[in-house]
Amino acid sequence: MNNTRPRILGIPNRYLTLAIIVLGIFAARVYAPVLPHIQVAPERLSHQPLFTLPVIGPFYLTNTMTAMVIADIILLLITFAVWKAVKSGSLVPQGFSGAIEAFIEVLYNMTESTAGKWTKKIFPYFGAITLLVLVVNWTELIPGVDTIGILEPVVEHGNPIEQVTSNIYTLIRPEGGTDSDHAAGFTLIGFVRTLSTDLNFTVALALISVFMTQVIGFQALGPGYFSKFINISALWNVFNKPMGIIDFAVGLLEIVSEISKILSFSFRLFGNIFAGTVLLFVIGTLVPVLAPSLFLMLEIFVGLIQAFVFGMLTMVFMSLATKGHGDHEEQHDH
């Protein structure tokens, strides 16, 4: 009977869970969690710029840059594992690379059912965006992200600190309540901050997604693709068919919709993950024991869904672009 229950190190999981909860209560009593300072822009890890570019200006190392490096290393490891598994020649990869391969196969089949003959062209964007965003979102779950970093002295919203060992300090709650406004003290700048909470990353991805959609549309339909935006033929025949002016206006609206796509792509991902991070901060401060675990599970789900939605929308917009617009569909599909 007992053998069927899952165990770690011979201890039944329920006792392990209980012990962790008790330890969490003690930890929260000794060092009460402090609500970190929340800001949208990524924090700089150094006061001196790494280098200065002529036009763009100084370039600082930010904590989202370290997250980018971590995500790239993880992706390289995945790439290496899959490459090694495929190179070994077996038709069915095993283990971790098998899981990655199954995930990619699901994405590929989805692309195939939507994009048809443009699958081979569109799929790499879908797969790359999904994998990158997934890995980036899940770096949020690594312990120490957002919580280990440099203590910065600030003049307001500061917290007092306490020495733990010779070189390691921790923020503590100020005496007499949590109101830390207008108090000089320290604030924490994490070494790593989830890359999705950096608007530069999400805007870059959105720009690439929308731009490559136009490129693929142009490849599929030729110059006729751009008549979707500036409908010259409708304007030419406006004397024969006065309703053509509406078609022309709709074409201009398409341009607006492309730009709004950039906005919605970037802020959807940013908003979800940033809100998730803030939620974890707040919950961790209010109910430091057990509750953050549940919200971490929610963040696993949200990270996966957002990665999937980002990639899937890119894929769907790209396959819509290959199919042309209105009457062009007849010309190019047959």
Binding site: P42, T79, I100, E101, A128, D198, V203
Partner: peptide, 24 residues
């Protein structure tokens, strides 16, 4: 930062396409 992210995605895209998507 925007340019850095775009270049980073380009890098990731090329590596993934060459060593993951194409073989798979």
């Amino acid at each position: 930062y925007l340019l850095v992210q775009i270049l980073n995605f380009a890098l990731v895209f090329i590596v993934l396409r060459a060593f993951v998507f194409k073989p798979i």
